[in-house]
Design a protein around this nucleic acid. Structure first.
Length: 549
RNA sequence: GGCGACGUAGCUCAGUUGGUGAGAGCGCUCGACUCAUAAUCGAGAGGUCGACAGUUCGAAUCUGUCCGUCGCUACCA
């Protein structure tokens, strides 16, 4: 009955503030799924952490005249604060900067070196003689050979859109120092991903239940070109240190090789803080466990191709990803959200403008599960006001108010009619539907099922008119209102994964939700005069002093 | 350039392996109700499913071409 579920969530990059697109892409869906799985009785381990390595962090640190550690700490702390505010229910949220993570990464590296899936190769790369370091492609600028645009990057020309190699650029210059980069030999370790092309192809072969856009993408990648070997070290002094000294100083493990290992190291770190330090094995070496990875579509190759290959090369017995329900992008009025380009809202801006559960509702109702989904400040406000507040918030308030005014407690519901039973059956049906949808990570549909339950209760109230009945027949009025309250008690289970903060407010009145089922409200439960779960957004005021839409 | 996705009611989106008259939410119109955060409930209007051609007894669903939007392209993560 109870089975282990690993909820593995993309590691946010601690190089800058994240935006609402990241929340929609990974953190919110992961949290909804994890909360549901816990209520469904499964053993959930939900892990992630800040990815604190990589070049963008060191470049930003240089720009600001601070250390890379300062940048990593700043954004890691920002993320921690935001997860708390958003109600993301981690079991362990750590970073790739821990000594433990370095040990796990080095252990995996050594095992793969030993069994021949990592080897050493020499290549030529551009080197900045002034900054005294090797340059990633995108830190080299120059004139585009195709369109003569003067500020083309080494990886791509922003003017004509063509993909470039840094050696294509006319008059290349370093973005760091403006110096002319020179080609210099450098030695790196390579992971032999090509060794795993066939196995990964076979692994993907039985994933027909994956989202089509995910499966199409990785299958065509593997089938057409196969996997290519990739350098997994970089000329940097910021990152996980190499466990061997073959390359000399100034080389570190590449951020992407180590970031995905975080799923394993964070699971172990979690277990080490419990009574059973080996408990992580319940998820990683258990054929009955299920691993679900929540990521944006930009991370698909790393999670569906490279990470499984790394795991296979490390240990044949270790658990591979079971599902990677990657989300597409949220766009803001047609443009891809980007904090650096000022498109869309940062997490802090979203939290400032909206009540948390309202924001969670609006984002969950618009998750880009199948295709890019367009949202805006007005759209979020509309979802909150016209859907969440009007249908669910108002329903809770109207029923609690009537029960409070007429009885002050949950009345007796003896003598229910077929009409009353039909309502409860409708709620139970909605709970089953929501359970099915969320299990399959169809979270928009799951939320819709919850709303269906709420609308069924509203329709029941309009049909039975308890506010009239209670005047002439208090006993029948009590049955109607008690039934409505029982129905709400069921509907709130379906809403609980999406709206954890208002769920807690209801917990104080109706008791905690402990399982995915409708539980009758005990007769005599005191019902005080309610305060609304949510408040409406003042759209005009919002747009008047907001220029970020 | 290559690869991929998308283009369905005013808006945001669903439409399993092609099959009775094309859907949801919101908005809009009309009606009901007035317990509730001017909330709710019911009914209705509204679409030649981007364009063109083809396959088929039958296509939003398959094929081709075109138009438009977007993403990826392995050293951004």
């Amino acid at each position: 009955m109870s089975s282990p579920v690993l909820v593995a969530v993309a590691w946010p990059y601690a190089s800058g503030s994240r935006h609402l697109g990241h929340v929609s892409g990974a953190y919110l869906p992961a949290d909804v799924f994890a909360r549901h799985q816990r209520l469904a009785g499964n053993d959930v381990l939900m892990v992630s952490g800040s990815d604190v390595h990589g070049t963008p962090i060191t470049v930003r640190a240089d720009d600001e005249g601070v250390t890379a550690q300062d940048i990593a700490d700043r954004y890691h702390n920002e993320f921690l604060r935001q997860w708390e505010a958003l109600g993301i229910s981690w079991d362990n949220y750590t970073t790739t900067g821990t000594a433990h993570h370095a040990r796990v990464t080095q252990g995996m590296f050594l095992e793969q070196l030993r069994n021949g899936h990592i080897d050493k190769r020499t290549s030529e790369q551009f080197f900045d003689p002034d900054a005294e370091r090797f340059l990633p492609d995108r830190y080299i600028e120059g004139t585009c050979p195709h369109c003569s645009y003067e500020d083309a990057r080494g990886d791509q020309c922003d003017n004509c859109g063509r993909t470039l190699d840094p050696t294509d650029l006319i008059e290349p210059r370093s973005k760091l120092s403006q110096a002319t980069p020179v080609l210099r030999e450098t030695e790196h370790f390579y992971f032999r991903y090509s060794d795993f092309t066939d196995e990964i192809s076979a692994y993907l072969g039985d994933k027909s239940d994956w989202r089509p856009h995910v499966l199409n993408f990785v299958r065509s990648w593997v089938d057409e070109e196969g996997l290519l070997d990739r350098a997994i070290t970089r000329d940097l002094d910021w990152g996980v240190e190499l466990p061997v000294d073959d390359l000399g100083p100034g080389k570190r493990i590449y951020v992407w090789y180590d970031a995905v290992i975080g799923y394993l190291s964070a699971s172990q770190e979690w277990a080490s803080n419990t009574d059973d330090a080996d408990h992580w094995r319940n998820w990683w070496y258990n054929p009955d466990s299920r691993h679900v990875y929540f990521i944006g579509k930009d991370n698909i190759p790393f999670h569906c191709l490279f990470w499984p290959a790394q795991l296979l090369s490390y240990d044949r017995e270790i658990h591979l990803p079971d599902d990677v329900p990657a989300n597409q992008y949220v766009t803001f009025k047609g443009g891809k959200a980007s904090a650096s380009r000022g498109i869309g809202l940062t997490i802090d801006q979203g939290l400032e403008l909206f009540q948390v559960d309202g924001l969670r509702y609006a984002l969950a109702a618009s998750l880009p599960e199948q295709a890019d989904t367009d949202i805006s400040v007005e759209e979020i406000a509309r979802r909150i006001n016209e859907e969440l507040v009007a249908t669910w918030g108002n329903l809770v308030n109207r029923v609690l108010s009537m029960v409070n005014k007429n009885f002050g407690e949950q009345p007796s519901v003896d003598g229910r009619t077929a009409e009353d039973e039909a309502l409860l059956a409708a709620v139970d049906t909605a709970l089953v539907a929501a359970n099915d949808h969320i299990t399959k990570v169809e979270l928009r549909a799951g939320l819709r099922a919850a709303m269906d339950a709420a609308q069924a209760v509203n329709a029941y109230l309009n049909a039975t008119e308890p506010w009239k009945v209670v005047k002439d027949d208090k006993e029948r009025g009590g049955v109607l209102l008690g039934t409505a309250l029982d129905a709400i008690n069921g509907a709130r289970v379906a809403f609980a994964p999406y709206l954890p903060f208002s769920a807690m407010a209801l917990d104080e009145v109706l008791g905690p939700v402990t399982a995915w089922e409708r539980v009758p409200v005990p007769v005599g439960t005191p019902i005080a005069k309610p305060t609304p779960l949510f408040t409406k957004v003042d759209v005009d005021a919002l747009l008047a002093d907001d220029d970020t839409d």
